[in-house]
Design a protein around this nucleic acid. Structure first.
Lengths: 234, 234
DNA sequence: ATTTATTTCAACCAAGTGGTTGAACCATGA
DNA sequence: TCATGGTTCAACCACTTGGTTGAAATAAAT
């Protein structure tokens, strides 16, 4: 296996990623991938046996790139919930700004092939031997537990942590999965929308904190963390 | 055109809707639709010229069923923002609980065919002659204006109304578009997830209000509107 | 009853699909 | 130099796809 091999393989994967993310599995054509990669259709089968196999490789890579960092953050017991949220939302946005079609692609293919979600989850977030003590199958245990804790202490609003998590995820992804609708409704150019997305990072953090924290606790937190420039004036 | 015609037409549309929502346009097969409708493939072409035409009919109907009520609510100047949010979130959830695949279907097809969003928007939300005075192209003008107003009055937090709208939409849709992921992560049965979705209605309203309103204003509002049972104890 | 128009279908077709073949190409090393 | 092995390709293949045909069944009209 020469260095040229690696290169060809990567060229194919990049092309495949573009086409699959744009068209979905059933909409993607092997010929279209070959064209985009600038080579013969045969090469795709030479390096990756079949369309399905090529797709699986791409899908797993994409899933990992979005979810692995997430899992690391949310199960890190050294981070406070506040830090987890900030790190997560910023990292998530940065990844999606770089790969805007990623979330819709994953969501759509999962919806068409629900069983994949189990395979993927196990492949990408293997249970490390060190922290099997609690609920090894739930990646967000630490996150959830900390919230329950904050509620008991009276710092946080008495909300359902599961509902908060879904809300936060929704706030993060919606500007990407529904990009065209939003951009059209707000009559934005591509550049304006990029700016909107970049600003949105801090807004989502602020929105999440407003849902989570009691008002005076949030006020206090902001004074203690002046370095975190949440919600800049627009 | 007999009553049987209407019936056959409707049977085909129901089957087509199922298959299209499940598989997307490129994943859907005319044979699969025919099978699901329990009739010959020819019938589909007899009643609806082509796959594309059949799809367009379904897509427009689906888009209308989700968006038309929304537009009516958001541009109704007689409703306060608070009422608009409550009515919108509840109605949106009810529609999606009945047609869970609707939002992901629309989002995915829009992403693959961005130009459609303009046609659809104009077909479904025609500018009524009565209220062309302001920004006839923006369906959410009233909603946005009221929020700006509330911010000036000091009732609402100094947030970007556009960001709030995206957050609200995201909170509404995410539990549906990412259903499999969420349901798997929370290890819920189908029945449990239905309950989760039903409860979620009030949580989303509460989350939105917490983002929007200043804490004391929200407290005051809840006391003035005891009939609105936002965020029931879980 | 007989004509006429609509509705249904099995069989078919041309174009496109993922995938294969067999030969050419090209770097490497003996 | 010439084998050897991996790499590239045009042409091809079996099968699926959306769409069509022409005729049979059915209903409606005279």
């Amino acid at each position: 296996m020469t260095s040229k091999d690696k290169n060809t393989e990567q060229v194919i994967k990049d092309a495949a990623r573009n086409v699959f993310q744009r068209e979905g599995f059933s909409g993607a054509r092997m010929q279209a991938i070959a064209d985009e990669a600038g080579m013969n259709k045969m090469m795709l089968h030479y390096y990756f046996r079949s369309k399905q196999h090529l797709f699986d490789v791409i899908f797993e890579e994409d899933y990992s790139s979005l979810m692995a960092p997430l899992a690391v953050i949310l199960r890190n017991p050294k981070l406070h919930v506040e830090e987890q949220i900030i790190t997560f939302v910023r990292g998530y946005h940065d990844t999606m700004i770089e790969h805007p079609r990623l979330p819709l692609f994953l969501i759509h293919e999962f919806a068409k092939n629900p069983h994949k979600i189990l395979e993927m989850a196990q492949k990408v977030i293997p249970v490390s031997k060190s922290d099997e003590s609690e609920h090894p199958q739930l990646s967000a245990t630490t996150f959830m537990d900390q919230i329950e804790d904050g509620i008991e202490k009276g710092h946080y609003n008495d909300i359902d942590p599961r509902q908060l998590a879904v809300s936060m995820l929704g706030m993060c992804t919606h500007a990407f999965v529904s990009r065209i609708s939003v951009q059209t409704a707000y009559e934005m150019s591509d550049d304006e929308y990029l700016k909107f997305l970049d600003e949105r990072k801090e807004h989502v953090i602020d929105h999440t904190f407003r849902i989570l924290m009691k008002p005076d606790y949030y006020q206090n937190w902001k004074e203690l963390n002046p370095n975190e420039k949440i919600e800049p004036k627009t």
